[in-house]
């Protein structure tokens, strides 16, 4: 039995639904806030995820960081060294998708050369008539960045757990790979 701990940065443009997604995940799908309440700093949410078919679990420390440009600099100081990344954009906003590469650059500075696994999330899939970003485009960009792609609707509570569960599983397999490497080491 192993209990892992991961610091998961939740980033993306303002109003794309980061807080909505994290609250739904955290509250097991009971909490969707219709009215927009802007995050002005960072909010920390913790949830423990059991890894299927094992006795292992991953405690995700989700850092929900404000998307608003003028607040980012202050928030960055609280990011720390991330273990995982969840990058969110709004499927009805081309602009929020285009900005994802800027978010990637920002994160990189905090990773100190460490490989940080991540997912790209296209949220608000319920607003299908207003969609501006096609799945294939998002998928392609995600792949180029080494991210796994998910589409969600926080409003309809559709697929909201998937990105977080996937991150937990990725972290869990990283641990096992690392442990195997260490077990096969020769003395110094």
């Amino acid at each position: 039995m192993v209990k892992l701990r991961a610091r998961c940065l939740l980033l993306g443009d303002p109003a794309v639904g980061k807080s909505a997604l994290s609250h739904i995940f955290h509250s097991d799908g009971t909490l969707f806030q219709k009215n927009y309440s802007m995050t002005t700093g960072v909010e920390l949410l913790m949830k423990c995820v059991n890894i299927p078919e094992t006795n292992d679990s991953v405690e995700l420390y989700i850092i929900d960081s404000a998307g608003k440009e003028t607040l980012v600099e202050t928030c960055e100081k609280m990011w720390g060294e991330p273990s995982l990344l969840c990058l969110v954009f709004d499927l009805t906003s081309e602009h929020s998708f285009a900005n994802c590469s800027r978010w990637m650059e920002r994160v990189r500075v905090h990773c100190h050369g460490l490989h940080v696994p991540g997912v790209l999330v296209g949220n608000k899939s319920d607003l299908s008539t207003r969609r501006e970003v096609q799945a294939s485009m998002a998928q392609e960009w995600a792949q180029s960045q080494g991210l796994e792609y998910h589409e969600t609707s926080a409003k309809e509570m559709e697929n909201c757990d998937a990105p977080f569960l996937s991150l937990a599983r990725i972290f869990h397999s990283l641990y096992h790979e690392c442990r195997e490497t260490i077990q096969s080491l020769s003395p110094g």
């Binding site: 701990r5 060294e81 641990y175 260490i182 003395p187």
Partner: peptide, 12 residues
């Protein structure tokens, strides 16, 4: 014994 070890389980 250097064959046995303690391992960290995430975050610093």
């Amino acid at each position: 014994n250097t064959n046995t070890f303690w391992m960290s389980t995430g975050m610093f």
